[in-house]
Design a protein around this nucleic acid. Sequence first.
RNA 1: CGGGAUGUAGCGUAGCCCGGUUAUCGCGCCUGGUUUGGGACCAGGAGGUCGCAAGUUCGAAUCUUGCCAUCCCGACCA
Length: 492
Amino acid sequence: MSKELTSRAEDYSQWYNDLVIKGGLADYSAVRGCMVIKPYGFALWENMRDQLDKMFKDTGHQNAYFPLFVPKSLFEAEEKNAEGFAKECAIVTHYRLKNDPEKPGKLMVDPEAKLEEELIIRPTSEAIIWNTYKGWIQSYRDLPLLINQWANVVRWEMRTRLFLRTAEFLWQEGHTAHATKEEAVEETKKMLDVYAEFAEEWMAVPVIKGIKTANERFAGAEDTYCIEALMQDGKALQAGTSHFLGQNFAKAFDVKFSDKNNTLDYVWATSWGVSTRLIGALIMAHSDDQGLIMPPKIAPLQVVIVPIYKGEDSKAVIDEKANILLAELKALGVRVKYDNNDNSRPGWKFAEHELKGVPVRIAMGLRDIENKVVELARRDTKEKSSVSIDGLSAYVVNLLAEIQQNIFNRALAFRNERITNADSWDEFVKLLDEKGGFIAAHWDGTPETEDKIKEQTKATIRCIPLNNTQEAGACILSGKPSTQRVLFARAY
RNA sequence: CGGGAUGUAGCGUAGCCCGGUUAUCGCGCCUGGUUUGGGACCAGGAGGUCGCAAGUUCGAAUCUUGCCAUCCCGACCA
């Protein structure tokens, strides 16, 4: 990373915004804070989505779809949830336009077409889903209910940032109902594990699993579990959350079930979600000054073959060899493209594919074919080597796995290097300003102290890691006794 | 919603302070040719309501007012 890119979030934003436009990942739309995801970016999202979807189904979940519009009366049913989202809702109040009598050719909202009840555009779907679950759950035999939805949501944030906080974003939200508290808590933790596995195994982004403090908890949840990742500029990013909702939503929407003894009780709930913010995490965790670096397992394109020729005759020879290799790689399930576009030169193609983060590039010229080799370049290390054509496709498959592992190891080393203990306030502030990353420090457990620390340093408690070591200490700010360190960081 | 800045071709910009011919330059785009082992070169060409509206003026990208949008700082944000 360049110095100027690591210093401020805005520089980062500008940087990948450029990449995105050049690389074809996304673009701003006309609407403030929304994004257009271009085909290459969407292919990445589809790969991520497909893998997550598989993992959800492997853990017994089914997909369903619920409406975009939430009537206000439903929305306000769970008070804490409604209050938490009230300040960032888009609201539909009318259903018709008409010609403006004052301005010919212009339209105006028809005041006659005002809705009886306003419709909230979902910022999250708990309300409408729990209102629906009421009709689906009567008996313990209906439980557990394990549903996931792929959808878009809208949150009218005052300030937006491409990928990390857009006004409209794509996500999945799981909403489950259980007969017992224990089972719901288990589900909450299980889905957190799924997220962590996805982040580490597929995105090659190391994460810390933990639990949020009361201040940072989801509105309406009893407990919020999270995975926290570290970006290359030293700021933390919440990459996914899984909530234990207790019986809050069941009570708000009157969802009861009869158990085996025919006694009525409210069901226990969880919800969990990850969004297109993960694309932001991927970009900011791995990319370098040459552009994106895609982990092979989810890269839209894993291998690109670039022919290097002079004239039609040599092109025909290379085409033949390249197509054989192309077919071999495809047969092995590799996402590969033969970039024989005659309009751009090899140098341009090299730069373009590096910008897009394609993990492996194979260059084939007459010189190579004579020697029965290709030039093979890997994106993560930028190393180039000459590799024999014999057994090349198997070699490439292994290399892709190696690159995946290397990217993860690199990010893990970077992250681990930036988890630092702080035992005094001065040390804490100095670390935040000079080193960044996660700072493990004692905290007295009160929201007041957490707020003061945030006010003075902009650092928040990212999480209390699961299986945290217990040790006696004194709060970094108040000096009051503490039983464990928590992880602080400046965050997106 | 408060403070600051910006808005000129698809993208990035000069010009604005101090009003005056046909709005500058680069990238990209189109046509033809030569090229092709790290973002090619030559020649020709297309593309503009200067954010929108009103005002001042013989004349406005330039001055004034209002509005809109975007970015940054705050507030806000699992």
